[in-house]
């Protein structure tokens, strides 16, 4: 892997919407076989970064290379190598779930087995349901399936686990890990620390269009440790059924141990988690209730 060029290299991307600076010099690299997580609050610039990288919008300045090409000049062959799950789904509301997945698969020369993918993501349970009648989590699963059905080399997942129940979320994380193990470069945005700690090989923390931290989870935490000591990062347990809690806890603890991060399950909501890493990197140095020195 180390000798291969990165799947994605962005350098000093800037993008403004009128007076609002959505991206302000964002640079990062995503490697094949790794999960790169872009973490930040709503409006931080995560989705704009993905939109630039997928060729949906052009940055005002900066350079961008995706699988060796400029995504804004991408042809069909290039687009087939890149899978995209956009935040609002982009699903035709009048179609039925499995019908839409089969349609998506038909755009590729050698797609994944649709039935296997549908079973894997639990789409078979709502195969005949109209998209407009699907729940948020069901839509997310369908959008994820459409993003990977063409067996892409690089996949962008914008908030892939948002709205999913814990059991499905766990399955989706496993699937994302396996994609990376197969050599796929995965770039995901999230504001869930669980996704970062459990999945990411690299983390990019963005706020107000600027990268405020980057590196492995350990590196990001270590940067803060050097200033303030060791951290305990709290992960949410909200909405986890009692039966699923032990398995989820075991997963999180294993992931936290792997990354050298102390973990504490709390009952706070997901929005609290978003604040954790951002507060960690807060240049002002104020302490928060989500961190504690040991």
């Amino acid at each position: 892997m180390v000798n291969q060029p990165p799947a994605l290299h962005a350098e000093a991307l800037t993008k403004s919407y009128g007076a609002v600076r959505a991206l302000d010099g964002v640079s990062f690299t995503a490697q094949r076989g790794e999960v790169t997580a872009i973490l930040g609050p709503n409006g931080a610039g995560k989705s704009t970064t993905i939109a630039c990288a997928t060729g949906l919008i052009a940055p005002d300045a900066g350079t961008l290379e995706v699988l060796g090409q400029d995504p804004h000049r991408a042809d069909a062959a290039h687009r087939a190598r890149v899978g995209v799950m956009i935040q609002d789904g982009g699903l035709a509301s009048g179609a039925r779930a499995l019908q839409l997945l089969r349609y998506g698969a038909g755009l590729y020369r050698a797609p994944r087995d649709v039935d296997e993918l549908a079973e894997r993501l639990g789409i078979d349970a709502f195969a005949g349901t109209l998209v407009r009648r699907l729940s948020g989590g069901q839509r997310q699963r369908l959008a994820l399936a459409l993003a990977i059905v063409g067996r892409p080399e690089l996949v962008f997942l914008d908030e892939p686990t948002a709205g999913m129940d814990p059991a499905i979320r766990r399955e989706v994380r496993t699937l994302i890990s396996q994609l990376a193990q197969e050599g796929t470069a995965v770039v995901l945005t999230t504001h869930l620390m669980d996704d970062v700690v459990g999945l990411a090989d690299h983390v990019l923390v963005i706020t107000r269009g600027r990268v405020v931290a980057g590196g492995t989870v350990e590196e990001v935490v270590a940067t803060h440790q050097s200033r303030r000591g060791t951290l305990t990062l709290r992960a949410t347990a909200t909405g986890v059924p009692a039966a699923a809690a032990p398995a989820l806890r075991a997963d999180l603890e294993a992931a936290a141990a792997r990354h050298g991060v102390a973990l504490e399950l709390s009952t706070g909501d997901a929005a609290d988690l978003e604040a954790v890493l951002l507060d960690v990197m807060d240049e002002s140095g104020r302490s928060t209730e989500n961190e504690e020195a040991r």
Binding site: R81, G106, R109, A110, R120, R151, L175, L179, E182
Partner: peptide, 24 residues
Amino acid sequence: MTTPAAPASPAASAGAPGPAAPLA
């Protein structure tokens, strides 16, 4: 929902990944 083996890797599957023909 089951947990089958990981989806086939691109190299291992029949046919290389890519777009379907334009008319298709």
